[in-house]
Nucleic acid binder design. Sequence first.
DNA 1: ATAACATTGTGAATTTTTTAACAAAATGCT
DNA 2: AGCATTTTGTTAAAAAATTCACAATGTTAT
Lengths: 211, 211
Amino acid sequence: MDKRKMRHIPHKTIERLSQYRRALLICQATGKTHIFSHEIAKIQHITAVQVRRDIMLIGYTGTLRKGYNITELVNLIGIILDTDEVLNIAVIGIGNLGRAITKYFSGKRTKLKISASFDTNPDKIGKKYAGVDCFHINQLEKIIKEKNISIGIITVPSSETIEIKNKLVNSGIKGILNYTPKPVDVPDNVYLEEYDMTTSLEKVAFFVKMH
Amino acid sequence: MDKRKMRHIPHKTIERLSQYRRALLICQATGKTHIFSHEIAKIQHITAVQVRRDIMLIGYTGTLRKGYNITELVNLIGIILDTDEVLNIAVIGIGNLGRAITKYFSGKRTKLKISASFDTNPDKIGKKYAGVDCFHINQLEKIIKEKNISIGIITVPSSETIEIKNKLVNSGIKGILNYTPKPVDVPDNVYLEEYDMTTSLEKVAFFVKMH
DNA sequence: ATAACATTGTGAATTTTTTAACAAAATGCT
DNA sequence: AGCATTTTGTTAAAAAATTCACAATGTTAT
């Protein structure tokens, strides 16, 4: 599948493909070799048609009455989602959340690697967290260039968000994942994703309230 | 606005209302009293029409050429999103992520309160994290009933997810926010929201790859 | 006072996403 | 072999979400 076709894959499908892969890897570990669309659907709480359509969109074809070959499907999702070379990632702010992410991510995906972390706390600098070196934030631009880091995950206190974002943008970062409750602005050539737990929690609260 | 009307508010709008409130509170703190739809839009990286439509859906009306009264709008969003009584929340698993959430959330919303946390590590039990007591997981059902907890946030290692989910469901929990990479199944009367960082990160990676 | 402008609110159009419906074909049963 | 069943792949329909387009109208400038 070439880039031209990939551009037409809906955003939602991209998210689901990531989720499918996660589920497929779990299933694969149990020794299963094939899986039906309705099995994937059940795991993800969506419909089987949705799964089949997503898989259709990436041009994979299952076997009638046998379902999808898990290994092949995982590989194809890898071709869509993963980069050829390893993509280096930096975590900025190695507090509880930064450490959770660093730890959680170590060794999880072969093509995504947390290659550095940053903080201002002198006690943390020079240490390793889940095998990842922690540098002082004033080294940010230097290290990002040296280590060819293309994605930054911001987990600093929200008062620092803007400053860190600016530093990241100045270092030529390609993508930012902002876990801070402070929304930021980035130039067009930087891809931005923001997530705030409060929103998820308030959403749950709303639907709980509505029964 | 009554519950009947609230039911027709789209899910996406609910999420954005939460985000608007966050942004509005920040603006309010700077002394601003009014805000234009395009200002909110800018902060949230969406269009002004979208903002106006969302606000229209909740039945609020701005002033021509003055924009929306921030205090009034914040209050109205509160009427939509918040419960009348405080909603009690439990965090299960007080590792890095659990602590990050507990700390981040303390005192953030008056109607949402983290009232208990749980773990199995004996060193943690009996301690307080950001002012929240930590109990042993085998106390889960008891404490949830005692403290009238309606939402559970799961931040345990994914091998424990299912067990914790079952305990939560058995305790009569109303909503679950699962931060574990292991998808779970819940009965219809429990509202479930799942979030996995890997998906966000892979999405950023994909769009970085696509330029 | 008048014109130019800015901004809301909303019906209609468009786009995106999801679901329904069903033909095609492999498998197993009798 | 023939029939019922299962499951994929896909076209078409429906639903959900977003954007366009513009009337209404208050504000500012001249």
